[in-house]
Design a binder for these strands. Structure first.
Length: 304
DNA sequence: TTAGGGTTACAG
DNA sequence: CTGTAACCCTAA
């Protein structure tokens, strides 16, 4: 009767992540007593933190420790239509000197983008912005810097993130999803749900995929040779490393898509980049699935 | 106190 | 009904 289930808020999740980052996973009591987080987590127990972290790890990392039981339900749907690439065991020599940007990624969950579950669904910068504004809870709205800092702290941010964020904010404002007032951004009241039109970004994305498939029908070859090289490297990585790379690939694909979106109809180059990135992301995911690690990575749910 | 298995509530 | 997230129990 008393406890209807206390779902975790994004603030709490953020605090937990920050706490783990500061004190390390497993120091639940310490995190809880840290005045930095006690304000947000005051109604949670150390066990709650532990359980929540377990849940988050399962989603973000792929395989926490509680999946052996559920391991039975693995579906490899989304079968590869044609390319079951046979770029097999090519370069296995230890000469992997220039492992792309080998990152520590220890406790690793700095970048949890959402990766397809059934259909390919890519994390949208839009959502991160919305989440940032929502969680920041600033009555007058949040300015670009604050939003940017939030996203950079909670997720992985690309090098050109600032520029992208500016463009994205402008785009969202122009399409009416955000309201800009005195340098502050707020979420438009009549935004979500029963909108007559789908989000423009999705429309564009779908169109892109269509043309992508068409190209592919005509023997589409990844425009960038590096893609194959990167993919080859992935095969010699640990699942954790591969997962992180795949996550970044997806995020980068998203970024490229967003850039193409901004450039609208003029940037064919950006479009090509976006498709190349998408191709790499897809290939990366397939490579991952081909191995045994599960690439299910999820963002936290945004509760209304 | 924590890690991990088990249980219950809730959403799809 | 099934899967998931929050919650509970207990050995170490």
């Amino acid at each position: 009767m008393g406890a209807p289930k206390q779902k975790w808020t994004s603030e709490e999740e953020a605090a937990l992540k920050a706490g783990v980052k500061k004190h390390g996973a497993g120091k639940w009591r310490t995190i809880l007593k840290d005045p930095e987080f006690s304000g947000v987590l005051y109604l949670r127990s150390n066990v709650d933190l532990k359980d929540k972290w377990r849940n988050m790890s399962v989603i973000a990392n792929g395989w926490g420790s509680r999946e052996k039981a559920r391991l039975a339900l693995k579906r490899m749907h989304q079968s590869s239509k044609d390319d079951d690439n046979s770029m097999a065991l090519a370069n296995l020599d230890q000469s992997d000197e220039e492992l792309l940007d080998e990152q520590p990624l220890a406790v690793s969950m700095g970048s949890p983008p959402q990766i397809g579950s059934s259909k390919r669904s890519i994390i949208r910068l839009d959502n991160l912005i919305m989440e940032a504004i929502t969680n920041l809870k600033e009555p007058a709205g949040s300015n670009k810097t604050t939003i940017g800092t939030y996203i950079e702290e909670q997720y992985w941010a690309p090098p050109n993130f600032k520029r992208l964020l500016s463009a994205k904010l402008k785009f969202l404002t122009n399409t009416g999803r955000l309201i800009k007032m005195k340098r502050k951004y707020r979420i438009a009241p009549t935004s979500v749900s029963s909108d007559k039109r789908k989000q423009p970004s999705m429309l564009l994305l779908e169109g892109k995929q269509r043309s992508y498939k068409a190209d592919r029908d005509e023997v589409y070859t990844p425009t960038k040779p590096e893609i194959d090289a990167e993919l080859a490297k992935m095969r010699s990585m640990t699942p954790e490393q591969a997962a992180a790379v795949a996550a970044r690939a997806v995020a980068e694909a998203e970024i490229a898509m967003a850039e193409a979106e901004e450039a609208a109809r003029e940037a064919e180059a950006a479009e090509a980049d976006a498709e190349a990135a998408q191709a790499f992301a897809e290939a990366a995911m397939k490579t991952l699935k081909g191995r045994s690690s599960n690439p299910r990575v999820n963002l936290q749910m945004i509760r209304a």
